[in-house]
Design a protein around this nucleic acid. Sequence first.
RNA 1: GCCGGAAUAGCUCAGCAGGUAGAGCAACUGACUUGUAAUCAGUAGGUCACGGGUUCGAUUCCUGUUUCCGGCACCA
Length: 642
Amino acid sequence: MIKLIFLDGQEKSFTPGTTPEDVAKSISPNLAKKSVAAYLDDELYDLNRPMEKGGTFKLVVESDEEAFGILNHSSAHLLAQAVKKLHPSAMFGVGPQTDEGFYYDIALDHSITEAELAEIEKGMRQLSQEAHPMVRSEKTREEALAFFKNDPFKKELISAIPEGDKITFYTQGDFVDLCRGGHVGNTSKIKHFKLLSLAGAYFRGDSSRPMMQRIYGTSWFSKEALEAHLNLLEERKERDHRKLGKELKIFMLSSEVGQGLATWLPNGYAVRKVLEDYVYELERQAGYLHVSTPVLGSKKLYQTSGHWDHYQENMFPIMEKDDETFVLRPMSCPHHMTIFQSDLRSYRDLPIRYAEIVTQHRYEASGALTGLERVRAMTLTDAHIFVRPDQIKEEVINAYHLIETAIADLGLEVDYLEFATRDDSKDKFHDNDALWNQAEAILQSVLDEAQIPYKEVPGEAAFYGPKIDFQVRTAMNRVITMSTVQLDFLLPERFDLTYINASGQKERPVVIHRGLISTWERLMSILLEQYKGAFPFWLAPVQILLIPVNNNAHEAYTKEIYQTLMHAGFRAKLDLSDEKMGYKIRDAQQQKIPYTFVIGDDEVKNQTITYRQFGSPEQTHILVKDMVDIFKKEAEKKSRKK
RNA sequence: GCCGGAAUAGCUCAGCAGGUAGAGCAACUGACUUGUAAUCAGUAGGUCACGGGUUCGAUUCCUGUUUCCGGCACCA
């Protein structure tokens, strides 16, 4: 007999070979229905996998977080089985679950079309109805390789499994796949799914390898949950910053101007200017000194910094004129290094924090360009902080707090931090081990001492040093690097930066690279999606629209109020068109203007204004004399959640 | 850059199994002068992304290019 210890501490004996499903059924049929898999000690078991030993036993039920992944992983297998049935020559790469569903990579001579997705989906439904058990088996490496002897993809995946790890196969009907599991035990458990899209994907994520066809899908435990998810996907389309940016006339991307080159329209620039002013003031108060450097730089400057060696592929081609070679700057660090260099520095001067609202150009791969999210000309607030070694920690923490403030003021939230370190790919990183070890140790200790949780990502560092990236999850459920703090011992050396220490000796400063809120372009894309185009008051391109009830009778008073608002620094707009009032209000709502004033006889008589807020029909009356104060307070709140 | 798809009026889209295009909104003109999400009528607007081919004839079929979209790779 084997002994299982349940969640509540109860122990129960079962005959060896009992499956988790048997156990679940013995507890309650309802529980068995909701079970997806089980844990025996720390090992994930399929519902139908016989248990030959005892241990702590925990069922994974539909409502558990990991159940979704298990279902979707199983759904990927169902997809593969259906594809294999339609195309017996198909071979497969990987087929994992994702945050929101699953995919499987397929190698097939024939190009799968959108129309065929429905056919494949039908095949999946049939296989689900046929209720094939998904049976696990263990194989030796030799057996596994022999089984897939004609499949170079699976053979390679088998070879990549570390020595000593179990190699397991899953069989459902006549379909056999290499897989570590766990699975839902039977294809009949997979009922509510949809295939979503087709894409290309390199085998093992390596662009030098063959491209496979990837099918994306999503799978849920109920019809309602599936529909809810499909609705969410529809809603996301409504939030897409490219759609909203066009509708609200925020920006344009025109092939006439050039691929990946965004043009900011008046509405977009109004928002951007608020952000620029906000950031400037935030930095000024934090002791940053603002500078301005040219958009062009000598190629030598970038050779000195090392950017030329690492990124010339991603830079626009060089320009040669009068024996000098220029590049369109892709980065501002080298420029700021020269500013530090330009004067004799004392240890008393440090830290020196240079900030700049800087436009830079990068030759991004054409396929990477996406709306405002990825462009070839971008403007951002960039900063470089020059510190003594003893000031590193404090300044990293200062930068951390500044970033926290900015992100909170924008109404966004940091999802998690990434601590990006180097790995052993030598050509990606500069080769001074001592500097690397020092820099990584310092950043690590800052994170640890401040007790900030983070995810370490080896190999993601910049070539000049490790970094802490602030990852924000957008309204589209994409994770984007919003801010960054990078520690750099290399560029000070490359530029031979020095300051005079207390004993009169030259010493090397350390540079902290700080990115505050991504680029204006990317930030705009995130904000548009976050607010679905309905900007909070302080950012809105037009904050207040004024509508007179009768143009003739109320124009003068409305204009007076308009002037008061404009002089007080607000962005107001007057609608004196011949349209009906209802039309004007609808128009204001469609433009997502935060406040709409309606001004008629009552307002003139009482020296008031009547407003409604975006999205609400409620009417509020306030005295004109209180108006400016009320809206100034509203603007000061920024987008803070609390 | 790679795989796949798309491109019709300012916008959103319909249409064409090959016979040079249509709606709604927007724009313009006129009437209406209004108290909280679309007043009515009229007018104008298109080398059907661009180049080449097949054809008596191409927006439609084939092909190349460009741009965009879904992904992959890349992202200092």
